[in-house]
Design a protein around this nucleic acid. Structure first.
Lengths: 156, 156
DNA sequence: CTCAGATGGTTTTAGTTTGAAACCATCGTG
DNA sequence: CACGATGGTTTCAAACTAAAACCATCTGAG
């Protein structure tokens, strides 16, 4: 971990978060945490990964402040793992991932889980990126502006 | 690759896309592709990763239809790597990642690149998930509905 | 009290992956 | 026709992954 620092010693705004998450397993753990899973054994059963790996991933998520342990909940003497605010901030990313999956990884007629509004059970809308004036913008409508300088292009 | 199929032989709507992307390098390659990079050497210089790794990642992205090769562009005899529509579909995910990074990985006063509207240079808004009725919804306002059955909860 | 089972890990060990460096092939140019 | 630029592949040591075995703690049953 944290070995990604290839040729620049400050990582860019995309690489830095990636490094913190760690790997795909971590993201699946976070997803399960959004689902309400809290215990080591629950994550292990849900994901089916080796216990040592789960242990390492949880440790990394804790170290990066994405999850935290809370001392108890149902009286059992064990700790539970819950998302911090930083961890809950990953929700849009997971939604983006899920929607991309819906678009390109399922046949049109293939059944798949649907993210719905709790209030009325209707599917949520697609994530949309909007400009200040409210226009929906795509990749081609955006560019990056470097810190204090002026130029730059693309989404780097 | 494709060894993630832990204990279920059909992967869920989040794991399947993750498996296709492959790893973090692939996502950084995609980001660079959004920036307009097209050539093997450009990616390699930008990311500073070993050529064999870049080669493997590009192969994987091609295999999953996220990028494709086009025979030429400036007359040089080499091929170029460009995003497919599926690849361009990753834009919201990258934006989500970047915005999460902005929120939690930079000091309030720390300079960082900013994603701006090409038309007027203003920063884009935050990604927001909206319900059908237009309400902005967070993780706690949503749940998943399983394929054709009725129950299910969380964002799995 | 003691023993078995549940929970939550760590250690061990083999296999896989990574990544730096060296090597190789092709094209275009002087 | 030698040479640099480009775009890779091969080699090999080091790091990481993952399955299984092991270990520690707590709980309830007898």
């Amino acid at each position: 971990m944290a070995k990604r620092v290839s040729h620049r010693d400050s990582m860019c705004g995309v690489a830095r978060p990636l490094d913190a998450i760690g790997d795909w397993w971590s993201l699946l753990i976070v997803r399960d945490a959004f689902d309400g899973l809290r215990r080591f054994g629950e994550f292990q059963k849900s994901l089916g990964l080796a216990k040592n790996i789960l242990s390492a991933r949880l440790r990394n998520l804790l170290a990066h402040g994405i999850m935290e342990t809370v001392p108890a909940a149902d009286g059992s003497p064990y700790q539970e793992y819950v998302l911090t605010e930083k961890g809950r901030g990953l929700f849009p990313l997971l939604v983006a991932l899920r929607q991309w999956g819906e678009d390109f990884f399922f046949e049109p007629d293939e059944a798949h889980v649907l993210l719905v509004d709790r209030k009325n059970g209707l599917p949520v809308r697609r994530l949309e990126l909007r400009a200040q004036d409210g226009r929906v913008v795509g990749a081609e409508d955006t560019m990056v502006r470097l810190p204090q300088a002026s130029a730059g292009k693309g989404i780097a």
